[in-house]
């Protein structure tokens, strides 16, 4: 089958990218060495030489980062695809319609409030989980508002959807600016990092904090793939085909906001992954969510891992926030997408 072939190809691509990405940086580790260091953990020795320094760098710095990029990339791409299915429009994206910035506002607020509380200092994992909860709440709140705003007479119109996203984005940015304005220097640094998006601060503890919030939705969402397909025909038509529409909408909003919220809590706002990955795959494998969602997870992970390599090497030893990288690469692709859609509309009319 062609579709299975593409999935297998994407798996190989992801593994290759991850192994290579883990080796790139100030201390170069070749892919063979990366594999040797990883295999040694499960007591398989292969005849490749490396020194202990390499092993330490790989374990302590590179690996958590690569894994976080994989988790966040797959989470954002799947969230984008599911949200596009829910809104029945390929232009819906967590960043464009304001959910990411809503979540990031709540994150910034939490950071500033938390660091003013002395007893919270040093408690990293509880802090990350709390951040997850508040960003999730922020993501839920904004997606609810956007969904309600964009609904006119029972259908959600894409122009109102994008415009309400624009309004929410503006509001959340203003509020974030307000919070950062009153923040002190240290708070400011970690707050701006949330609005620009970066994997710089990732450690093993943030990976563990992220893991359940990404894995659970990524496993559950493909189970809704059939319903999402039918949903493309329209809400009524989905009901005619036996889909419990209200429940489906609620479940998808919760799962996608979980993904977006968790990603924003760890890495801030990383735009365009959720828009571009599903779009690329749709043009190859079509819109069937049964294959689209798993493939999105794989390609999203691969692309964000690549983007992270760019973000930490392009101006080394300094680091470029990854949100800037995805925006710079993503915006032109987004424009191409718009032009293509315009042509399609012209064909139809």
């Amino acid at each position: 089958m062609k579709r299975n072939g593409i999935t297998i190809g994407l798996i190989i691509l992801l593994i290759g990218t991850a192994v290579t990405a883990a080796g790139i940086g100030a201390m170069h580790i070749s892919p063979q060495q990366v594999i040797a260091i990883l295999l040694k953990q499960i007591n398989i020795h292969i005849p490749v030489t490396y020194d202990e320094g390499m092993a330490n760098v790989l374990w302590q710095i590179r690996l958590p980062r690569v894994i976080a990029a994989i988790l966040i990339g797959s989470g954002l791409a799947v969230a984008g695809a599911a949200m596009q299915g829910l809104f029945r429009n390929p232009m819906a994206d967590p960043t464009l319609i304001g959910i990411s910035f809503g979540a990031s506002f709540f994150a910034v607020l939490t950071i500033v409030v938390l660091s003013s509380l002395p007893f919270m200092n040093g408690a990293l994992i509880p802090k990350y989980y709390l951040l997850n909860v508040t960003t999730f709440a922020g993501a839920c709140f904004t997606s609810f508002v956007v969904f309600r705003l964009s609904k006119t007479g029972g259908r959600s119109l894409i122009t109102t959807l994008l415009l309400s996203g624009l309004a929410i984005n503006a509001l959340c940015r203003a509020l974030t600016d307000l919070v950062t304005y009153v923040a002190n220097d240290e708070q400011l640094r970690s707050a701006t990092y949330w609005t620009m998006g970066s994997l710089g601060g990732v450690t093993w503890s943030s990976v563990w904090a992220l893991l359940p919030f990404i894995l659970v939705p990524i496993i559950l969402l493909p189970r809704l793939a059939k319903s999402l397909n039918v949903f493309a025909l329209g809400e009524q038509e989905a009901a005619y085909l036996g889909v419990k529409v209200k429940r489906l909408k609620a479940v998808i909003v919760v799962l996608t906001t979980l993904l977006v919220g968790a990603s924003v809590a760890i890495a801030g706002v990383i735009g365009f992954v959720g828009l571009i990955v599903p779009h690329m795959l749709r043009s190859i494998t079509g819109s069937d969510h049964r294959s689209l969602l798993p493939n999105c997870a794989l390609l999203g992970a691969t692309l964000l891992t690549m983007a992270d390599v760019v973000s930490r090497t392009i101006i080394a030893p300094a680091e470029l926030p990854i949100g800037i990288v995805t925006a710079v690469i993503g915006t032109p692709i987004f424009v191409v997408l718009l032009v293509k859609q315009k042509k399609q509309l012209r064909l139809m009319s």
Partner: peptide, 13 residues
């Protein structure tokens, strides 16, 4: 089964 008056499909199937 129901055939509706019109279908607005935005995703490529």
């Amino acid at each position: 089964a129901v055939l509706s008056q019109q279908y607005m499909l935005n995703l490529p199937f």
